[in-house]
């Protein structure tokens, strides 16, 4: 059912622009983490163009919804979504990883409006998101906090400290999205240090769990709207490198960078 205010077409348009623009950044810098950028892109486009309450002109607005990129290496996705959302002009993207750029290889909130906290070492964003959700509960605010982790990232123990605290405190305005692409830097998650059954783990920690196709904006919108009286974990099943045939499901594209030919092919596919 298509409604006049259906955000899905806009989300798809933004996600396409993000992938193309992020891949150009990675190509020009010859640095980056495009595989994880592309697995998270549709989730982030859905959040910023269909779910979250924010005002790019007031990045410190107390009542804003927060998005925390816990897998801080996926800056291609983060910087393009913040740019698309209006936090800074597009020419800033041209400086990606250049000397003294605001667009460091991992995000810094002091350099760039819209970045909520500095991430990079894994297992940091989720605990900070729990703190933001506690602050919201203490002040009676209705803002929501969204945090996106990689799936391999959940091997870091600090995440499970955070999961315990959030479950214990029933932080119902906190949503964790696990970018479940099943690949980490070197190999599959399940062959490295397995996470399954991930849903049961989070339920045991006191969380509502929803499993969703992380590349389907309509399904994501529905998942984000799930009523809950406790923190919610969206296990978003995704494909690392989604959208470019030679990148999909290849661990080597975790921090692989394209040559000119690969870049041209990707631009042909991303339409």
């Amino acid at each position: 059912m298509t409604q006049l205010n259906d955000p899905v077409p806009l989300i798809r348009e933004k996600a396409l622009w993000m992938r193309r623009r992020a891949f150009r950044m990675v190509h020009e810098a010859q640095l980056g983490h495009p595989g994880g950028d592309f697995s998270a892109t549709d989730i982030m486009a859905t959040l910023y163009f269909g779910v979250m309450r924010f005002d790019p002109k007031r990045p410190d607005w107390a009542e804003r919804d927060r998005f925390i990129m816990s897998k801080g290496h996926a800056t291609g996705a983060l910087y393009t979504v913040l740019c698309a959302a209006g936090y800074f002009p597009e020419d800033w993207l041209d400086t990606y990883m250049q000397p003294r750029s605001r667009l460091n290889g991992h995000p810094n909130r002091n350099y760039l409006p819209g970045v909520e906290t500095n991430t990079g070492p894994l297992g940091h964003g989720f605990p900070v998101a729990v703190g933001i959700a506690i602050a919201g509960a203490l002040s009676g605010s209705d803002h929501r906090t969204f945090v996106l982790t990689g799936d391999g990232e959940l091997q870091e123990g600090s995440n499970w400290e955070a999961a315990m605290v959030a479950g214990h405190r029933k932080l119902k305005r906190l949503t964790l999205i696990v970018d479940r692409n099943r690949l980490q830097q070197g190999a599959g998650t399940e062959e490295t240090s397995g996470l399954d059954p991930l849903d049961e783990k989070f339920r045991a920690f006191g969380w509502q769990v929803v499993e969703v196709n992380g590349h389907d904006p309509a399904a994501l919108l529905a998942a984000f709207a799930t009523p809950t009286d406790r923190p919610m974990c969206l296990i978003a099943n995704t494909v690392k490198g989604k959208g470019v045939s030679f990148m999909e499901n290849k661990a080597s594209w975790h921090h692989g960078v394209p040559n000119a030919e690969q870049f041209a092919q990707a631009m042909e596919e991303l339409v």
Partner: peptide, 10 residues
């Protein structure tokens, strides 16, 4: 980490 988040939340 919660300390940092609380500061983010004011």
């Amino acid at each position: 980490g919660v300390g940092a988040g609380l500061a983010n939340g004011g």
